[in-house]
Amino acid sequence: MPPIVRTLLTRGVPLLALYLVVLGLIGAGIIDAYWMATLALICVNIVLAVSLNLITGFTGQFSLGHAGFMAIGAYATAIISNAVAGPAGFLGGLLAGGVLAALVGFLIGLPTLRLRGDYLAIATLGMAEIIRVVFVNLDSVTNGAAGLTVTQNMDWNWFFVLTVGSVILIRNYLRSRQGRDAIAVREDEIAAESIGVDTTRAKVMSFTIGAFFGGLGGGMYASYFYFIKPDLFGFLKSIDILVIVVLGGLGSLSGSIIAAILLALISTLLQGFTEIRMILYALLLVVIMIFRPEGLMGSRELSLNVFSRLGRRRPALATAQAAPGASEAQGKGDER
């Protein structure tokens, strides 16, 4: 069986099934507007968490400014989709938001990522605050602190395509030459440089790509939640995203996805207990971190491929199809 056919069968079929089931539930009215909001939030959080995991979990660079990229994407999408009708409006807005966020990420990353250590955390913290304050004061474009209403909304089809597309693109990046360079930087920066990895380039590249998808996630947020204001993208929002990443496991994409789903569900189910909701939420986080300090998934990945062993270890970094020898060795490992 050619690899592409196998990939379509093992990964494509479960994904298509998921898409159709949710579509059916929406059609049957079981997923109503309330649950659709949760679903949209899950999709947004998956894109945000996976992109931050690329920066922090895989490249090892601690970033505290993901909400800043999110804000850029959200405002770009809101402004452009309000001006241009139809899918061209929000798709154009998403693209513009992603590119702008990537540009800002590149400009912040280039000077700070040359250094070793946690300079990036401070720089991104400042950057996100600056972005927020700029949006507050740019009255004529952003309507300042009062916020912007978004007139066009995406439906489930777009959310599905954008979320799955983002995860696949980031996964492909991580299992390529460029992604392995980034992982080498996380593992040991000095060793990586000694074997010819341009560590600054690897870090800036990961950070810029992470910023792009952070902007995309922000745009998705704007296009579902009708209304955005600068306060939504404060420091606490960056921490929210970081919580998802750490809870899921630094260095595990599937961990981020599972944690994004879990936290959104918990948050929705706790709506009934308004007074003690945040206490319960925080308590749950504490309990999970006590019993799973490495996060729900650690650095393991859960494959959609139903035929392979669940929870395969990260070695899958190597592309199994590309190396006949490697895939045989992996096959043997799976039998054990």
Binding site: L169, N172, Y173, S176, R177, Q178, G179, R180, D181, I183, A184, E187, D188, A191, A192, I195, G196, V197, M205, S299, R314, P315, L317, A318, A326
Partner: peptide, 26 residues
């Protein structure tokens, strides 16, 4: 690179001589 496989340790060094564009990675 302790948390990577033996193969990936060598792959990362070897790939420095074998470039391909970012777009084809994605």
């Amino acid at each position: 690179f302790k948390d990577l496989t033996v193969l990936d340790n060598v792959v990362i060094a070897l790939q420095q001589n074998r470039r391909y564009p970012l777009l084809s990675s994605f």
